[in-house]
Design a protein around this nucleic acid. Sequence first.
DNA 1: CGACTGGTTGAGTATGGTCAACTTCGGTGG
DNA 2: CCACCGAAGTTGACCATACTCAACCAGTCG
Lengths: 245, 245
Amino acid sequence: MDNMAAVIADKCRNCALRTDEKLICAQMSAGELINLSAHSNPASVERKQPVNARLLDRNPIIAIVDGVIGLQHVLKDGRRSIAALYWRGDIIDLRHGDGQAPGSLIALTPARICSLSVDNYDELMRTNPDVQTVAVSNMREQIHAAAGHVVDLGKKSAPERLAAYIFECRKRQLGGKDSLNVDLALRRSDIADYMGLQPETVSRGLKELERRGLIQLKGRSRAIITDKAGLRQLANGAPEPKPAQ
Amino acid sequence: MDNMAAVIADKCRNCALRTDEKLICAQMSAGELINLSAHSNPASVERKQPVNARLLDRNPIIAIVDGVIGLQHVLKDGRRSIAALYWRGDIIDLRHGDGQAPGSLIALTPARICSLSVDNYDELMRTNPDVQTVAVSNMREQIHAAAGHVVDLGKKSAPERLAAYIFECRKRQLGGKDSLNVDLALRRSDIADYMGLQPETVSRGLKELERRGLIQLKGRSRAIITDKAGLRQLANGAPEPKPAQ
DNA sequence: CGACTGGTTGAGTATGGTCAACTTCGGTGG
DNA sequence: CCACCGAAGTTGACCATACTCAACCAGTCG
């Protein structure tokens, strides 16, 4: 056992993908992990840097260890859109059957990722049911999250979208579930491109949430939720309760 | 062989999920199919009808045989949004880990579906690599499609969204790839809720595409693409070529 | 034929986009 | 430690797109 463990590559030993039991590498036997690690590439990415295209070409499976990666589309005339956010534990499979490229990956915070070999990944999916379960349920989560995001963009006002964004950050941050102290994670212009707004509108919208007493802004990247129920209502698109005045 | 085939349930024999070799049931052996069919429920759904909730509760895996199913979210104040469209061959896995319900399914055209038993489905995913490949790549497609849709909703104008919608219909309809004759599939108000617009805007937008000579409307649900390149440009968000006048 | 659903048209309006100026922040170097 | 610089964020004035609301039209079904 110790002997086996001894040959697990250093790069994997303390990686969150391995140590967090809900994540993908934690599902593998020592042998499987050693095998996988031979073809995997951990990498750090600076904020605003794209994920190396050469890397993606050879190993189009990316697992997020830390930080936030965005799936970015740039329209012909320069409009930028961030279609999805990937956080710790998410697995991005960039293989695309036929159509156009699925966009490019870009780090929205300093991030650590690990690119996996397609062959190893597919093999594990076939042979290790635990890996399969983790990977497939991550995909389900992504589909679910995307549906929620579509609803945000399709029918919600700017303040509603920002309320929803705050809950998304809260859900995905480490201590997440029980904290009222939320790290907004992205820069204003990235939030804007993700939520289908302009940076100015994000700024005004957050101010508006503060004015309504739902949150309190602390510096540029921190929000304290001061009325969780109210913020949730707003995020869910409930009609604004008439202020009795 | 013929003996085996003889016991495949009638409901499966001529089902597109079985006869179209790219779809899920075509990946199964006769024995697997017989086994699965014992717990599967084919159903027809009228337009505007929800997919039976009782059915979903017991068998939350739905495969689309024909027609279009929408994933519908209704906000607290009544705004309706269609987060995703499912077409023939798509597989909907409605299991949701923790959070809120992923919305409800509703038929947007007359549709035929088949609900599968979770146990059978999971078993097949584990034991039959071909089934797994089909199911997983369908999930990938859904994620990819969702990302594209998010871009549409986040940054595109009404005419651009409608151009994109027309291509989506074209891609998914049977003769799809090589026809300029597109069935718009949904009613105006469903298109609106899917594309994040109002029915009036859809109407005006389609008129606008016609005015620009990109399409020609034939009746309420048919569009002939008259300038495919131009329509594609528009759908991709290219700046409008200055009309030299 | 009337009732109903779905769709279109028109006028007025509100929300968020645009553009430009200005402020704050964070880092760097004198 | 402070001065400076560039990037990020905020504010304000103006404007455009798409929403709202209402009326009207076109098919379809009983």
